[in-house]
Amino acid sequence: MSTTAGSTLTDEATDLATDLRTLPQRPYQVVVWNDPVNLMSYVSWVFRTYFGHSRKRAEHLMMQVHTDGRAIVASGAREEAERDVTAMHNYGLQATLEGAE
């Protein structure tokens, strides 16, 4: 008969969970995609308003979305990036999350 009393399995599992929490988190990127609906001025305004980008940076990102079809507008921890993608959806922009390389 097997018991867990005196087993190191729970200690090892605890150590593994601690190790995983202390690993650096992989950064994620927020990608905004071009669409035929939103005006370029609106997209630039969203980037300035939500992300706090300067007018010059926001217009550069907006032009990247317009000409390249997409732009990486923010990066960070997964939870932050998920929040940003949701915010972009709430502003009516098409956005996705992808792992940074």
Results as ranks from 00 to 15, higher is better:
residue 1 M to F: 15
residue 1 M to Q: 12
residue 1 M to S: 15
residue 2 S to R: 14
residue 3 T to L: 10
residue 4 T to L: 15
residue 6 G to P: 06
residue 7 S to G: 01
residue 12 E to Q: 14
residue 12 E to M: 14
residue 12 E to V: 14
residue 13 A to N: 13
residue 13 A to I: 15
residue 18 T to H: 15
residue 19 D to Y: 10
residue 19 D to A: 14
residue 20 L to H: 09
residue 20 L to A: 08
residue 22 T to D: 09
residue 22 T to R: 13
residue 25 Q to M: 04
residue 26 R to N: 12
residue 26 R to K: 15
residue 30 V to L: 11
residue 30 V to F: 02
residue 31 V to N: 03
residue 33 W to H: 14
residue 33 W to R: 13
residue 35 D to C: 12
residue 38 N to V: 11
residue 39 L to E: 10
residue 40 M to Q: 13
residue 40 M to W: 10
residue 41 S to W: 11
residue 41 S to K: 13
residue 41 S to P: 08
residue 42 Y to W: 01
residue 42 Y to Q: 02
residue 43 V to G: 03
residue 44 S to D: 04
residue 45 W to R: 05
residue 47 F to P: 01
residue 48 R to H: 03
residue 48 R to A: 02
residue 51 F to K: 15
residue 52 G to M: 08
residue 56 K to W: 13
residue 58 A to D: 05
residue 59 E to N: 08
residue 60 H to F: 11
residue 60 H to G: 08
residue 61 L to K: 03
residue 62 M to I: 12
residue 64 Q to N: 13
residue 64 Q to I: 09
residue 65 V to M: 03
residue 66 H to V: 07
residue 68 D to Y: 10
residue 71 A to Q: 05
residue 72 I to R: 03
residue 73 V to C: 09
residue 74 A to T: 08
residue 74 A to E: 07
residue 76 G to W: 09
residue 76 G to R: 05
residue 77 A to R: 07
residue 77 A to T: 07
residue 77 A to Y: 04
residue 77 A to P: 02
residue 81 A to N: 04
residue 85 V to S: 02
residue 85 V to I: 05
residue 86 T to M: 12
residue 87 A to D: 04
residue 89 H to Q: 09
residue 90 N to P: 03
residue 92 G to P: 01
residue 93 L to C: 08
residue 94 Q to F: 10
residue 95 A to S: 07
residue 97 L to D: 07
residue 98 E to H: 00
residue 98 E to D: 00
residue 99 G to L: 01
